[in-house]
């Protein structure tokens, strides 16, 4: 490994400090004993204890988790299917248009996505609640999944599927028993990505949630408007932990597993 020059060291330190100091402060203050957020009075975990007594927060956490699990699962199924058709479907009519349209939501401002979904739900008379958040999250995270999965499929050796067909598989059987196991790491990282996206989404959720179903980010946001409490610091720290876990696992998985699989596959096809 090369040592960095002093200039690069400084840039790196500054950049990362800029990124992480706010979060580090937040995590540190979540262990503050005092009630004031900005004055350190001693170490304590009591705010974590109080947090777990708070019905409203726990409720919101439960809704968030439910929404994240369900929506990321749907998004993974839909996103994988979309990616498969885009990469494997050959040059069908309108393919370029479709693949462009799949990626459009990635760059669409969330406010617009949220608003349009809200209008849709009102138009079809769907009451806002957990279901609408799930639908909304599925919608916007499936394109992330399809990006992750299609980048894997592009490097997937087509002749493996042909071999499966040749040996008597139906196309669906071939997908299930050959393609899916091989692209599984990408599918799982897609799921984790969708899960994290759903977990920390505020904008779209605030358009599509109802009074009965507040997600954690919404809860935090509205609580903060009444003043920051150490309890919220504790909650945020937990969320940072979960998201960090998700992100790190995703990137590790996609990096390790995909490079390994590719090496295996390259070897298997010589």
């Amino acid at each position: 490994m090369r040592r960095l020059s002093w200039f690069n060291t400084v840039s790196l330190t500054l950049g990362f400090a800029f990124l992480y100091i706010p979060m580090i402060i937040l995590v540190i203050y979540s262990f503050n004993a005092g009630k004031l957020v900005t004055v350190w009075t001693g170490f304590s975990t009591k705010w974590y204890g109080e947090l777990f007594q708070n019905e409203a927060f726990l409720n919101a956490a439960w809704v968030t988790l439910k929404v994240a699990v369900i929506s990321s699962t749907f998004a993974t199924v839909l996103g994988t299917m979309a990616a498969y058709v885009m990469v494997r479907g050959g040059r069908f009519y309108g393919r370029t248009l479709f693949s462009g349209m799949i990626y459009a939501p990635l760059v669409m401002p969330e406010v617009i996505t949220g608003l349009s979904l809200l209008l849709l739900f009102i138009a079809i008379g769907l009451d806002r609640g957990t279901l609408t958040i799930v639908l909304a999250h599925t919608t916007f995270s499936m394109c992330y999944v399809s990006v992750v999965v299609s980048s894997r499929l592009v490097t997937f050796d087509r002749s493996l599927e042909e071999a499966a067909l040749d040996l008597g598989c139906t196309p669906f059987d071939a997908f299930k028993s050959v393609t899916l196991p091989i692209i599984a790491p990408a599918v799982i990282s897609g799921w984790l990505l969708a899960f994290t996206l759903s977990l920390d989404d505020l904008v779209i959720a605030s358009f599509t949630s109802g009074p009965s179903s507040t997600t954690l980010p919404i809860k935090i946001f509205s609580a903060v408007r009444l003043g920051v409490s150490p309890e919220i610091n504790a909650l945020s720290s937990i969320m940072i932990g979960i998201v960090a876990f998700g992100v790190i696992t995703t990137s590790l998985m996609s990096k390790r597993a995909i490079t390994r699989r590719q090496a295996e596959e390259n070897k298997a096809v010589q």
Partner: peptide, 20 residues
Amino acid sequence: VPPNKRAVNMMFQSYALFPH
């Protein structure tokens, strides 16, 4: 007739072994 319905088996030049 689709490939999976043909009484034909092929050995691929690239082998196409299932890596998993």
